[in-house]
Structure formats: C-alpha cells, structure tokens
Design a binder for these strands. Structure first.
Lengths: 287, 287
DNA sequence: ACGCGGTGATACCCGACGGGTATGACAGGG
DNA sequence: CCCTGTCATACCCGTCGGGTATCACCGCGT
C-alpha cells in the first residue's frame, strides 16, 4: 500500500529527467502508454501530484522535485546494495576470491600521494587487492553512493564530504597556471583578483556536479585539454600545487596568496565494516 | 536483470532478521513457500549465496551480512522518498498546506534548549509548523534516515552524526546521579572510576542502538524508570548536567571531573533543500 | 480555416509471475 | 520409531505489467 517499488522510482526519475514521456520510455526500453499509466498509479498511490502536464511537455511540481532528489538517492542505495553484495559473494568461503577494494580517484590528481598510498598498503600484510577507478572531476561522490567504489580520494573545496566518513590526508596551496610568456608569469605571487580579471585570459571553468557556471572562459573537461589551452595562451586556471608535476615547458605556475587551500581526504560510505577498507584507511592516515 | 526490487529487499531483510522463513513470512503477511522461492530467485539473480540453510534454521553468509546492511539502508532511503514526497504534496500550490517540519528529540533531553529553539523559531516571520517527535534513546538516526523526521537534536557521544549534516549547539558536562542518602552523594566531585565500581550500586546500562552491553546494572528504557531506580537506591547513572532539571528530592547530583562532555547538535539529512529547514537551522545556530 | 505533427491519455489484450495450497524431503528429539 | 519442525518442490490461479492501436488535444504551418 505505501511502499515504493524501485521500478516505479526508476520510471519516475527517467520521466523527471527527460520531462518527456516518449523519450523517457525509449530510455527505459519500453512503450510510452504503460509508462504513463505507471506514473499515474504512482501519483495515486502517493496521493500527490508529481507532474504538471501542459499539452506541450511536462513540468515537475514541488513534490516531484522532492521525489526526484530522494528517488535518486534511493536508487543509488539499492544499486549499491546489489553491487556490494555481488562483490562480497563467495568471499566468506575460505579459499574464495581475495578481498578487493575499488578506490575512486580524480584522474591526474594527487598522483604521488596515490602512488605512496598504494605502495604502502600493498606492503601491509594481508592487504586486499586495490583497483583504481580513475574518474572525472566530480564523480567520486556518485561512485561511492551507488556502490561502484568502496573508497575515494576527494579534494575540498571541490568535492563535498557530506554523507561520508572521511579523514584528511594532506593540505596544499594553489597556484595560477599561466602561459609561460604572459606578463603575469613573471610575478612572484598573485591574488585571486589578479587572475580573475585578466582581459585577454578568461578563467577556465570547471564543471561542478555536471554543470558549468556561466562565464567567458572555456569549459574544461580534463587535464590534457586544460594544459593545451593554457599552453596556447587561451586561458588561465587555478590549480593545486601538486599540479606542478605535470607542467609543460610552455606553462608557468605562480603561487596564489589568497586561494583557499586544497585538502585531500580519503572518504568512504558511512557504516562500512570491511577489514580491508579499515586497513587502507589506517595506512593512509599514517602517510 | 541486475536491479533489485524493494520487494526483494524487504523479503530478504525479514528473513535475515528472523533467520527463519516461517516467522519472516508471517511478519510479511504471506505464506512461506513463495518467500522461499523469492529468496532463491534473489540469490540466482545476484549470483551469490546469501543464506546457509542447515536443516535446523538459517545462517547468514558474508554476502548475506553485506546485503542485510546495505538493504536496510536502501529500504530506509525509499521509505524516506515516499514519506517526504507525500509531505511535500500540494505544498507547491499557493494557499496549499503550510510547510511542516518534523523534529526528532530524545524524550526528556535538552528540554529547555528545545523550548528556546521552538519559541525563537515560531517568532521568525514565515516559519513553518514544527511537529516534535519524541523518541527513545537512539532512534533519531533511524527517524532521519527513513524520512519520518526532517531534523533532529542529537547528543554526542551517544548519537552518531555519521551520514548527516549537523551543527553543534551546546556543550555540557556530566554528573553522577545518586540516591540522596548514599555516602558518595556528599562528595564535591567524582571521577568515572569512582562511580564505576561502587559495590552496592551497579552502573545503569543504556541501550546503544537497540542492544545492551553486558554488565551487572539494570537495563534502562526511559528516564522515569531510571529516576525511580536511583531513588530506590538500586543504581547510579552518568547523565548530562541538564538532567538536573528533573531531579527528585531523593536524588543527588555530583559533578564528574573526567566524563566526556555532551554536545547537543542539530542534525539533518544531507542534501536537504527545504527553506523551512534552513530557517530552523539558522535559528538554532543563533541561540 | 483546416490539416498535420506531436504530445500524453485511454482501451483492450495477453503473457509472466507473484502468491496460495498441498505436499515432499530431511533432521532431531521424545 | 514416529512426530515435529524445518525449508524446498509442484501445481494452480489471478493480478498486473507491458504491448499495440487509437483517441483527445493543442500549436503551428500553409
């Protein structure tokens, strides 16, 4: 009577994201009429109007917004349950598959910290196998939530630690990454204001949870692209100190006096009770 | 093919908790054979053995433990989605039902703080209606997770703030609560060691997430019971300073020098995006 | 003004599957 | 030894989820 099925949540999230029954049905691999009916049944069962159907397309009501948010979280949780259970399968029988940990790391970030962590953990007696899952800019949180990863390296202020347990590992400052020939590249230090309004060098824009803030600068998708755009003199970026390890000859890095420090954390889902995970965290904390 | 239905999770959690198909089926309001079949299907779909069936009862495998843990979380998340959506229903239409917040508080704890908070918030312009949900010793976390509450007052070190956003409100010391006539009641201050091994007064035991640690003292379920047992000279307890507001004449409170301080937090689920909630938190932070 | 395209809703049918009842296989205890 | 209690199997049935065909409605073009 009052318990939502994951099927219903999947359907509703698809419709709420597409705002179009036909496209949502296609995405779900089904026909449109049963999808319409399913959403109507869902609305009846909840006793709530979720969608506002104007003859031209669909809009979310307030309750719909809530269900989109909460439904995504619930779907993540069930997906995580399935994945983690599958991975734990057989691990109880002695001689079964070794413990395995999936560690999510932003590609090209914290490279030497990561190497040190992996080396130190591998040297521990009884350590599990660690699979490194290199991901995009802000995906670690999603990967942890839906069970594709067990543990992640995260970087405040870009990642949010909300909803996870975490331990801070290192703190570093930030530098401005400029084309080597640029006048500002000769300075000893810069402030954020200096790099924000350079007329010929618009500040690069990083995605924040899949969307880009508006602005004049180019939209950055990965580190290679950023490096090239800077080398070409098209943009300037604010990056952590450790980025110096991948500087090109055409790059210059100038310390920033007032940029917020970047803290690298190791983070994991609350209530994780795996000995392998505990060992990795202990190793990380000792670095 | 790989997406768990909430029905399957409900069934498995019931079996895993009862460790008995018959009782689980009864609890679920269904017959035992379809339940057996559903669990078998679940195991086949996950490709994992979840239960070890000895002819006498059932035991969880390692994978089963994982699914019990993760499945509970997933069920909480879907229940929360349903509840919060229902509560948000109609709130979007102007003139619809007022915003409502459910605040979970341990019964008899932080009484004056709660009163101040409610008064201050009610005085705010545009404040929502606040329903106070008085709960047992450690239920706030569950209430927040499954959507029965929107926000809670929690007390470290008893409650865990893991998985929630929170803000610290007040810190207080702890006192030993003794029968008025007891020799220790005359002391100016006590240490934890003093109250731990009083031969004639075993330390009362509080439940921690539903279970009691072993020990000689009585198992406490609520504040009234504790007060009476102390007055009867049967036990001694360690409680926050603010408990002084409900002391009886037969009680004596003696400060403890080395007890961990009790911090009262206001906590809420991560990603909450309600203006009413934000207002309540802001009010609390200003107290 | 009229027809056309595109939206979501309705009508109807069918097969899958979730659930019930009856029964079986098997172990432990009086 | 049978009786009790456990979970698994066999079989039946009704519900309901999904597909196809179609409708009702609106905006827009000519």
């Amino acid at each position: 009577m009052d318990t939502l099925e994951t099927r219903e949540l999947r359907y509703f999230v698809a419709v709420a994201e597409e705002l179009h029954f036909g496209r949502a049905a296609e995405r779900l691999g089904m026909a449109q009429p049963p999808l319409s009916r399913a959403i109507q049944q869902l609305e009846r069962r909840l006793g709530v109007c979720l969608l506002e159907r104007n003859r031209r397309g669909v809009r979310l009501t307030g309750a719909g917004e809530v269900l989109l948010q909460e439904g995504r979280a619930a779907l993540d949780a069930t997906a995580a349950a399935a994945r983690r259970t599958r991975r734990a399968g057989g691990a109880d029988s002695p001689g079964g598959p070794r413990d395995q940990l999936v560690l999510a790391v932003k590609a090209a970030a914290s490279h030497d910290l990561l190497r040190k962590l992996l080396d130190a953990y591998a040297a521990e007696p009884g350590s599990a196998e660690v699979e490194v899952l290199l991901c995009g800019m802000c995906e670690q949180e999603e990967l942890l939530r839906d069970g594709r990863a067990d543990v992640a390296l995260m970087h405040t202020p870009w990642n949010s630690l909300a909803g996870f347990d975490s331990e801070a590992l290192t703190t570093e400052g930030q530098v401005a990454l400029l084309p080597a020939g640029h006048p500002l590249a000769a300075r000893e230090a810069l402030s954020l204001a200096d790099v924000r309004d350079v007329p010929d060098l618009p500040l690069a824009r990083w995605p924040s949870h899949g969307t880009y803030a508006p602005g004049p600068g180019p939209e950055i998708h990965n580190q290679t692209q950023l490096a090239q755009l800077i080398a070409l003199g098209r943009t300037v970026a604010v990056v952590p100190d450790s980025a110096r390890s991948w500087l090109w000859a055409e790059h210059a890095a100038v310390p920033l006096t007032d940029a917020p420090p970047v803290v690298t954390h190791i983070a994991w889902p609350v209530h994780s009770r795996s000995v392998a995970l505990a060992g990795l965290i202990r190793t990380a904390a000792r670095l």
